[in-house]
Design a protein around this nucleic acid. Structure first.
Lengths: 278, 278
DNA sequence: TGCCGTATGGAATAAAAATTCCAAAAGTTG
DNA sequence: CAACTTTTGGAATTTTTATTCCATACGGCA
């Protein structure tokens, strides 16, 4: 008998995804002794808290001693609670952990062929877009669009790294017949006096933040004009000057960003403003 | 002195909500010493992972020793990391069901809302990147890099829709110390005589092809200078003038292209050329 | 009712994580 | 350039958390 039970025993195949976890849970729940069943039920109802709880907390929730919960983890196929928790912690932020490490490696051996480089940038772009979709704050976006739609003229400013974005915004605004002015710093001319009451500023800057962009934003802010910021983090100096700050998560490759997410955001903003004004 | 500093010292008022946390973060970030600033930046960019990470993990991400991160938590007003983490664990709502579900939600919003538009552009960008990765011709890419690496000066030209790409290329070349000149059409000045023997032209244009770009490419071609084209199809008028044509499949949404794939390709090209020249 | 196998709770232990502390480095100021 | 302050890294310590183990309770069966 003993050998039989050994053979039939729960195979130590731990679920590799949240999906698999749920399947396994459903398949074993019914023929489980009382306490383990309590575990299963509580876990099923609170799957999302696994990532942020301790054994003791979860056990208390299921009204069982910690050791029961440990047994439960092992029955599912994990070596213990920590391994199970790992699954949920990683599922929460997929891909991210070793990504920047990979970039560093690639940077180290600069033997990268053009095609290999391209693959990296494509991947970076895809990830950026994904995390943009996940993280964007709809309220802020709505507010930004509303503000810009009311403006007489939109002053777009973004230099260096942000200049491609600024120039694309200017292009789209032009196509949609939205009065806009691109502050491009050509000839080091200072166009700040072009700002009139009723106008709004759309400023784009990423670390290291460009002095001129911040100056223009500060100037507009001081004069009571609405400022919309497009930047990398909420700690950016733009945050203090702007009425609405939209942040874009973008992965750097050395000094270079893929800009995919930023451009996608910019163009959405521009098209939304264009439509709203009609 | 000691009493003064005690009085002036950061009040130990810990943020009680994630909102307050962000405010506090933004307000202190700028006058923070180097390491603590790294903490602030990394935390700002990865706020959502605080709940599921350990001190060691976050510290590694910020590239600082764990003790620096502890100090950071205390400066913000918490007694330590655990207290800070508690805030985020309580506010925790998992990001899954992830990306694709989130996209659907965004799109489900009233059509034409900024968020819905963003979802469309994100989708278009991703598709473009995917098909770029699948369709890119490595041989052509290698040839383009080789040609540009040999050039004395690289003349970058791209107008209207392609201008953001051209300007980004110019930026990257500058950062990598590659001699490059951006033909931007400012003041309608014609810089064609800047083309010298030994130079190369990198021309970017999409339908409807910009006259000025084609003219410059044709001119260079006539004078025997190598021309590299970045365009949408092999039937583009650039194809006849160029020594190597790299095509980018870009998925349009409405009248506007996301540019994601084009920028990814451009930056790969630039970085490859920059590396090759060293 | 007495036997046996499984299930259970909690105390003991091991592992991992957070936190403190201090000596050394870096930076400032007179 | 010396005295002093601030910042830093890492080793030592403490606290928390996970995990194991075993004596006991329970339930079915003869």
């Amino acid at each position: 008998m003993t050998d039989d039970s050994e053979t039939l025993q729960t195979p130590p195949i731990a679920p590799a995804t949240v999906e698999e976890f749920r399947d396994r849970l459903a398949s074993i729940t019914e023929d489980l002794p009382k306490r383990l069943r309590q575990c299963a039920d509580h876990i099923a109802a609170n799957t999302d808290r696994i990532a942020v709880s301790t054994v003791a907390e979860l056990a208390a929730g299921a009204d069982v001693p910690p050791s029961a919960l440990m047994r439960f983890c092992q029955i599912i196929g994990f070596s213990g609670f920590s391994e199970m928790q790992k699954l949920f912690r990683e599922a929460y932020a997929p891909g991210w952990p070793d990504y920047s490490t990979r970039l560093k490696n690639l940077k180290a051996n600069r033997a990268g062929s053009p095609a290999a480089l391209l693959a990296e940038f494509v991947e970076a772009g895809r990830l950026s877009l994904e995390s943009l979709a996940k993280s964007v704050d709809e309220q802020v976006l709505d507010r930004a669009v509303a503000t810009l739609s009311r403006a007489d003229t939109i002053h777009v400013v973004g230099l260096r790294r942000a200049f491609p974005v600024a120039s694309y915004l200017a292009y789209v605004f032009e196509k949609m017949a939205v009065p806009a002015m691109l502050h491009d710093g050509v000839g080091k001319l200072d166009h700040r006096f072009a700002l009139r009451p009723g106008d709004a500023v759309l400023a784009i800057t990423f670390a290291p933040y460009s002095e001129e962009t911040l100056t223009l934003a500060a100037d507009a802010h001081a004069r009571g004009l609405p400022v919309i910021g497009l930047t990398d983090t909420l700690t950016s100096p733009l945050a203090r000057l702007a009425d609405a700050v939209v942040t874009v998560p973008e992965v750097d490759f050395g000094a270079f960003r893929s800009l995919s997410a930023t451009i996608a955001l910019a163009i959405s903003l521009a098209v939304a403003v264009g439509s709203a004004r009609e």
